[in-house]
Each structure stands twice: as structure tokens, then as C-alpha cells.
């Protein structure tokens, strides 16, 4: 299994992942967990200073891609599609994501992702992502 330092070195080479500014915190063959730092460029609602829904979805997609293919050489795993359920506003502060690979076949992987801030029991969003592995 690839070590966290190598994964985070890969992450830091991806321009959009630097824009998101997150770090992979744990990893095994079927899971990835990451934490993202709040930045003003992540704001969707400038009055309330909530995260933009698209940033939350992007962070979930990034974590999901790493869970299916953590040792990507050039570009992360190819996304096919996604669905996201927004459950609570993402407020100013760190956001965490946990990706679970539900199924990894020869060609397709299905990944479920959950994001939260204070407690996993109070999710900010849940998502389902498909990736093409060929």
C-alpha cells in the first residue's frame, strides 16, 4: 500500500487539488479520508460565508478519486458521473471527507463519500461517484 507522504506529494502536483487545499489523512485499499482547509475562494454564499456547493462536491470527487486510485502517476481517476445530496450548510472552518469504495470492478468503480465538520453523525453532504478505470 502506498504511504500517505507519497499520496500527498501526488496531491500537491495537481493544480486543482492545490486550489482546494486538502490533505489525505488516512488510506487503505477501500477507503480514503481527507481534510480541507477553508479558504475565501471556497465561499459560495458571501453573506453567510458558507462553502460553495461545487467546492464540497469537488472535494468529495477528489477524495473518491484517491480512494480508487491513490498512486496515480499523472492525472487522478477518470470520473464518469456523480450525485450529491446537500444536507447541511458547510460553515467557515475545516471540512472532512471519507470515501468508501463500494465496488471496484475491472472497468468501473463505485464510491460513496460523506463529508462533515464537527461530527460524522452530522454530515454536510453525501455523494455517490463512478469512475472509469480503463
Amino acid at each position: 500500500m502506498i504511504d500517505l507522504q507519497t499520496v500527498n506529494a501526488n496531491v500537491s502536483r495537481v493544480p486543482f487539488f492545490r486550489f482546494l487545499n486538502f490533505e489525505v489523512q488516512s488510506l487503505d485499499s477501500l477507503h480514503a479520508e481527507a481534510g480541507m482547509t477553508f479558504e475565501s475562494r471556497h465561499i459560495g454564499n458571501p453573506i453567510m460565508e458558507h462553502y460553495h456547493g461545487g467546492i464540497i462536491a469537488s472535494f468529495m470527487e477528489a477524495t473518491a478519486a484517491i480512494s480508487v486510485h491513490p498512486d496515480f502517476a499523472d492525472v487522478p481517476a477518470k470520473p464518469i458521473n456523480l450525485t450529491v445530496d446537500y444536507l447541511r450548510p458547510g460553515v467557515k472552518g475545516p471540512l472532512y471527507a471519507r470515501a468508501n469504495v463500494t465496488r471496484k470492478g475491472k472497468r468501473i468503480a463505485s464510491v460513496s463519500v460523506i463529508t462533515w465538520q464537527t461530527a460524522l453523525e452530522k454530515p454536510v453532504a453525501e455523494g455517490l461517484y463512478h469512475f472509469l478505470l480503463v
Binding site: 502536483r13 495537481v14 493544480p15 486543482f16 487539488f17 492545490r18 486550489f19 482546494l20 459560495g44 460553495h52 456547493g53 461545487g54 467546492i55 462536491a57 469537488s58 472535494f59 470527487e61 477528489a62 499523472d74 492525472v75 487522478p76 470520473p79 456523480l82 450529491v84
Partner: peptide, 24 residues
Amino acid sequence: NPDFCVDSDQTLLHGGILTALLDS
């Protein structure tokens, strides 16, 4: 915007930014 790319050549946009664009 090259910040939104995934590759080192900066020609391939990340899907997430397209999702963010649709949401906006």
C-alpha cells in the same frame, strides 16, 4: 483558468469545477 486543471500541462479541467459551475 490553469488553477482548475488536474494535469501538469494544464489543459485538462477537473470535473469538480464543472460541477461548481453548474451549481452556480
